[in-house]
Design a protein around this nucleic acid. Structure first.
Lengths: 279, 279
DNA sequence: CATTTTATGGTTGAATTCAGTCGGATTTAT
DNA sequence: ATAAATCCGACTGAATTCAACCATAAAATG
């Protein structure tokens, strides 16, 4: 074999390349759909899909294929226990209520602020953020203007850090900043990343009003670096697991406190399995 | 009905919320998988999926669900005729070969540069970009450092524009810039957006080497604004549809030209239906 | 406490999809 | 021209999945 089966091989490759395009654009495609659009038999599509899967570009499922090439997921958003999730979502809902249409909102990175962002999609706002996942939510929304802070992107969390981000923040002013925190003590807000702390300090300076979203487990816990004192915060949003002592402390610091009722953690974690009751 | 069916309703909502989270994180989830992870019956999952689909957050398929809520797709990346796609992919492959490991690469927005970016994922590089979709490709890659240019994000294309992006670019230097173009004439590169043109000019200034990726249909076509002259470009990558006249023009401008063979457009469009031949 | 409403889990028959095999057609090589 | 190899399309039995129905249990209502 000197010149090989050139023509057929090219046709084969062409079709698979086109197939991969269809899958990539859609993210997911039904088998029947592909048969129709490629104009070949089901068996052929099936064979091509097998090849593509072996190659690693696509993942087969019942009735279709899923694109598995690009779109990697950030580590932080994958591994989280559903228990805290319920609280995060409830807190995010309250925080979103506090924000009014027409505002300019600065959104920090983090999972709780991400949930806030999800609830703000579609509203008439100007959004500023240093978080790539948050930016993706608003990227194709015509109703919300989006400003992204630049800089070095942290691989784990997907947020922009560094002097460039801070510098741009120094020139901005927003009506409301939504901040997350790794811990909150009497001294103030704590964060786990040194560079991020600087960025968050810049966010505080740029804001007319500061909202901190943190579930009750964060209170009384410290982390690597102090970001700011409690007095800089205007509103705290948390869940009803917050101790009375902390509620007092927040009131004394002159901040507003918004509490959400969060469903029982056990129920949320395993789904309550038919509570029995004596007849 | 005064107080409603509070407890069950909350449980219901909780479970569906959790279900949506699972789907959102994975992008796609098999039904059996969800049954196992939620610890409820198949019927219940099925019902929840129906509700979620009616609500528009998810799309059912055979054997699973596809998340359709978040991650809105940018308009520019959806509507693409497969014909040009083959050329884009082939051009992107060649362009990726020209880039060496260890380089600092500046990637422009656009669909062709996006294809280049896809092929660079996993390589040892420093990547700078103003494109949100490109940034997403590298966001969770440990092997490549990612720097994102900030600024106002264009809703249609997902690229960062404006004075801040330009300013940051002015302070950067990269070994290679990969640029796209809406049109190329004897006068130089053209682009369809005024603000983007300024940003691309800044990209040219920041680069030690400039690669332009453009399929042959772009040559001889003009667009809104002139970005730069041909003399600023070091390498052109295009397909074999490029006319000899243009090949000469590029050589005269002092630029290197890389040509890829792209399979026949007709074959790519309809799939060649058994070429007959006289016996 | 009795009734109604709602949610859940199991089952069943129908529909869809899968993997493997076969024959035909075309290209390549001898 | 003949033989071998490859690719494609169709068919078939097996496995999976779907939608609908029914029975049960818990919660809300009065």
């Amino acid at each position: 074999m000197r010149s090989g089966h050139a023509v057929k091989a090219v046709q084969n490759h062409e079709r698979r390349s086109r197939l991969l395009d269809l899958i990539r654009i859609r993210g997911f495609a039904a088998l029947e759909e592909l048969v129709r659009e490629l104009g070949v038999s089901e068996s052929t599509v099936r064979r091509d899909l097998d090849a593509l899967e072996e190659q690693g570009s696509a993942k087969r499922t019942h009735g279709g294929v899923l694109y598995s090439g690009g779109m990697p997921r950030l580590a932080e958003f994958d591994e989280r226990q559903p228990a805290n999730w319920a609280a995060k979502r409830a807190i995010a809902a309250k925080a979103a209520e506090v924000i009014n249409d027409g505002e300019t909102v600065l959104l920090d990175g983090g999972t709780t602020t991400y949930e806030v962002a999800r609830l703000l999609v579609g509203r008439s706002l100007q959004v500023v953020t240093n978080s790539l996942p948050v930016a993706n939510l608003f990227a194709s929304e015509a109703r919300t203007d989006l400003v992204l802070l630049g800089g070095y992107v942290s691989p784990r969390t997907g947020v922009c850090l560094g002097p460039y981000a801070n510098e741009l923040l120094g020139r901005l002013h927003v009506t409301t900043t939504v901040l997350s925190a790794a811990g909150i003590s009497e001294e103030g807000l704590f964060n786990a990343h040194l560079l991020l702390a600087e960025t968050e300090q810049a966010m505080l300076k740029a804001a007319g009003r500061v909202i901190v979203v943190a579930d009750s487990s964060k209170f009384g816990r410290k982390s690597l670096t102090l970001v700011s004192g409690l007095s800089s915060i205007n509103v705290f949003v948390s869940d009803d697991g917050l101790s009375p002592a902390w509620r007092d402390a927040i009131a004394k610091a002159g901040a507003q406190l918004v509490i959400t009722r969060v469903p029982d953690a056990d129920d949320a974690a395993h789904g309550v399995p038919h509570r029995t009751r004596p007849a």
